[in-house]
Write a protein that binds this DNA or RNA. Structure first.
Lengths: 231, 231
DNA sequence: CACTCCTTTACACAACCTTTACGTTGGCTT
DNA sequence: AAGCCAACGTAAAGGTTGTGTAAAGGAGTG
C-alpha cells in the first residue's frame, strides 16, 4: 500500500487531505512540525512526502536539503501561490513536483499518482528483465545493447537506444513524455523543451530505413506508444 | 551467488539497501561497527564490501587500509556528498569505486554490477584460455605472445598487445574504456586521461599497415569493439 | 645517453544533444 | 464551418562532449 507523509502546519488542510487520500486507499500520516517531520521522513517508511514550504520551526527548503542527505524519497512541494523562486530552488534540491496552494484535492491526487507511477516504473527498471524482447519487426538484445529491424542493426546513439528500449519494454502501453524524459534523458521535462521530440523523430527515421510499417505512435498530450501484436 | 557486506552505522539505510539488493538476488549482510566490520571483511566471505567513510569506533579509511593488508576484496566507498578528499584518499588506498550519499538504490545497483562484472572479467583472464584466436584477418598466438595480420607479424608493445588481446578475446562485444584501462593498463581510468586513446590509435595504425579493412570500432561513451564474422 | 615505451598536452574534429524556427495537426471554441 | 491555439514534426543551427592524433614530456633500461 502506498503510504504518504504530509508535513504542514495547517491542521485543517491536513485533515482535508487525509480524508481524500484515505478515500483513495492511501495510508496517510500528517505532522505539523518541521523537525518531527524530518525525523519521520528519514525513516524511509513512506513512499511519498507532501512538504509545505512555509513551516514553523524549520523551513521546508532546509528540511528538504537535509532529507536529501539521507534519502531519495519522492517529495511533492506545496507552496503559496506562484512563488516561482521557491519552485526553482525546490526542484533544484530534488523535489519531484510542485503544487501551488490552494489546490484541489483532485489535482493533488493526480500529481501523487503521477509520481507513484513513475517511481514504480523506475523500480521496474531495476528488476531483472528479459534480455531480449521482440515487438513486431523490432528485436531488442540488451546484452549486446543493440536493436534490430528485420535483422538489420539499428545504429542508435545511447539516448536513442534508451528511449526505444523503454518503448519496447512497454509495448502496447502509452509512455508519457515526462517519464521518457526522466528515465532516458535523466531530467525533468521542461516547458518548450523539444529535445525528446527530436530524439523520437530521429528514431523514427532510422527505423523507417528498414521498415516503413513499424511506427511509433503519438498520443497527443499523453505520450508515445509502440503498438504490438497483429494489426 | 554474489554476497555483499555493508559497513555503515545508519541502520535505516542498511535496511533500505538490504531490501533492494535482496530483491535483486544478492546475499546481504550489514554491520554497524567498524571493528566488527573489519573482522568480517577479512574473512573473505564476501564478494563485495560497501564501506561508509564516517564510522563510529573506526574510521572507514583506516578500516580500508587495514583490510588491504589481508584482502583484495572489492570495496565500494560510501561518503558524504562531494567529499573529494576522502574520495581521492580512498581510491588511492584501493577502493574500487566511490558513491556519494544520498544515492539512489538504482545507482548503487548499477555500480555494484559494474564492479562484479569487472571482477568476473579479471577472473576469466586468469583461467586457461584458447592459445590461439582468429578474428577475421587477425590471428592471436598467446603461446608466442604474438598477433598476426594476414601472416604479417604485428610489432606491438606489451601494452598494445594486452589491449588487442582483450579486444580479440571479446570480439563482437563492446569492451568499455574503464575495463580496458584496468585490465591492460592496470589503473583506473581518470578524467582527461588519454593514454588509452593513444594506444588504440597506435594499434590502429599498425594494423592498417597490412589490412585497411580491419578496424577497431569506436562506440562513443561505451568503449571499443572489434567486429567479427562475415560482412 | 641513446633507446623504447608510456603518458601528457594541445588542437582539430566528429558525434551528439539541445535549441531555434517554422510548418502542420488536431481538438476546442465561437 | 471557421478560427484559434497548444501540441507535435522536423530541418537547421548552436553548443557541448568525447575521440583522433601529432608532438612533447617523462620514466625506465641497458
Amino acid at each position: 500500500m502506498t503510504s504518504i507523509l504530509m508535513i504542514d502546519d495547517d491542521v485543517a488542510l491536513t485533515q482535508l487531505v487525509a480524508e481524500y487520500l484515505q478515500l483513495d486507499g492511501y495510508q496517510f500520516k500528517a505532522v505539523h512540525q518541521g523537525p518531527e517531520g524530518l525525523e519521520l521522513a528519514k525513516s524511509n517508511a513512506f513512499n511519498l512526502i507532501l512538504l509545505d514550504i512555509m513551516l514553523p520551526g524549520m523551513d521546508g527548503l532546509t528540511l528538504l536539503k537535509q532529507l536529501r542527505q539521507h534519502s531519495y524519497c519522492p517529495v511533492l512541494m506545496l507552496t503559496a501561490r506562484g512563488d516561482e523562486i521557491d519552485r526553482v530552488v525546490g526542484l533544484e534540491l530534488g523535489a519531484d513536483d510542485y503544487l501551488a496552494k490552494p489546490f484541489s484535492p483532485r489535482e493533488l491526487v493526480a500529481r501523487i499518482k503521477a509520481i507513484v507511477r513513475r517511481v514504480e516504473l523506475i523500480q521496474q527498471q531495476q528488476q531483472p528483465q528479459l534480455s531480449t524482447v521482440q515487438v513486431n519487426s523490432l528485436r531488442l538484445d540488451s546484452a549486446k545493447r543493440q536493436i534490430f529491424v528485420q535483422d538489420n542493426t539499428l545504429i542508435l546513439t545511447a539516448t536513442e537506444y534508451q528511449i526505444l528500449e523503454l518503448l519496447m519494454r512497454h509495448a502496447g502501453d502509452v509512455v508519457s513524455k515526462e517519464d521518457l524524459s526522466q528515465l532516458a534523458l535523466g531530467k525533468r521535462l521542461q516547458l518548450y523543451d523539444r529535445s525528446l521530440d527530436m530524439h523520437i523523430s530521429n528514431i523514427r527515421k532510422k527505423i523507417a530505413q528498414y521498415d516503413e510499417g513499424e511506427k511509433i505512435q503519438t498520443l497527443r498530450g499523453l505520450g508515445y506508444l509502440l503498438l504490438k501484436g497483429e494489426h
